[in-house]
């Protein structure tokens, strides 16, 4: 997307862009990743999470490998339509259901990337979940760990516990931030995910954007705030 870089990043160097690719056209995706590699205006490769098949499937592996090989984190930014219903029980009636169903697409992605052994095969792969919230991630990791122990004969390629792989390879952005009924529960949630894996996002200009002044309903410890608002992204995207 040269337009993206030219129109936004050149006049405003604080802006970085995501490389847009077409997941279902491997040759063009690989070419675009290589074309943008080394261009400091591009921070990551963006893949819409609602694909024809879950991202861990073998057909997408070369694209993910190319992202890692070229130093790009992969951002999974909510959006797009795969043709599949938004929920496992079919198409919902209301946006009130559609909005939380984004979480379920993210859960499918994490589950697929872990179970297919993608992180074991591509140890440099870094994945950022964008606009899916994040408070759901710890329970998914517990569930994967528990049932992996029982069903691991089916996935002999998985040598490490799912929760370890998630903790190592997955970053989350905060918006739309979940608001626990007891605000302090946000702290345990971040602790379970790892404060070094959480990055602030506003989602400007969407209606459900998070204002940096009010997004967290609890005061973050200073070292966490530094990580979440700044350092994690600086490190991940090598912004210095």
């Amino acid at each position: 997307m040269s337009g993206n870089a030219r129109n936004s990043c050149d006049p405003e160097p604080r802006l970085k862009a995501s490389v847009q690719i077409t997941l279902e056209h491997e040759a063009s995706a690989l070419a675009e990743i290589e074309r943008r590699a080394g261009d400091p205006r591009f921070a990551q490769v963006n893949i819409p999470p609602r694909g024809l098949e879950p991202l861990g499937r073998h057909r997408y592996r070369r694209i993910l490998a190319a992202c890692a090989a070229n130093g790009f984190p992969v951002s999974l930014h909510l959006g797009g339509s795969s043709g599949h219903a938004s929920t496992g029980g079919g198409w919902p009636s209301f946006y009130h259901e559609e909005h939380p169903s984004y979480v379920q697409s993210m859960q499918t992605l994490v589950t697929s990337l872990v179970c297919e052994g993608v992180f074991e095969e591509i140890p440099d792969l870094k994945v950022v979940l964008v606009e899916g919230g994040f408070a759901w991630l710890p329970a998914l990791a517990w569930r994967l760990d528990k049932h992996w122990k029982r069903l691991r004969a089916e996935v002999p390629h998985l040598r490490r516990a799912p929760s370890e792989q998630i903790r190592e390879h997955i970053w989350v952005t905060t918006q739309p931030i979940e608001e626990p009924e007891r605000p302090a529960d946000m702290l345990s949630t971040i602790e379970w995910i790892g404060p070094e894996r959480v990055m602030f996002s506003t989602d400007y200009p969407h209606w459900d954007q998070d204002d940096p002044r009010y997004a967290f309903k609890v005061r973050l410890p200073e070292d966490w705030a530094r990580l979440i608002y700044r350092e994690n992204a600086r490190t991940l995207y090598r912004l210095d």
Binding site: P49, S101, Q104, T108, H147, L151
Partner: peptide, 19 residues
């Protein structure tokens, strides 16, 4: 009738059960 989310059909029963 539908995959577990708009993300499509997984490969393993483990994925299915977790979903």
């Amino acid at each position: 009738r539908h995959p577990p989310s708009a993300g499509g059909w997984g490969s393993f029963y483990l994925e299915d059960y977790v979903s």
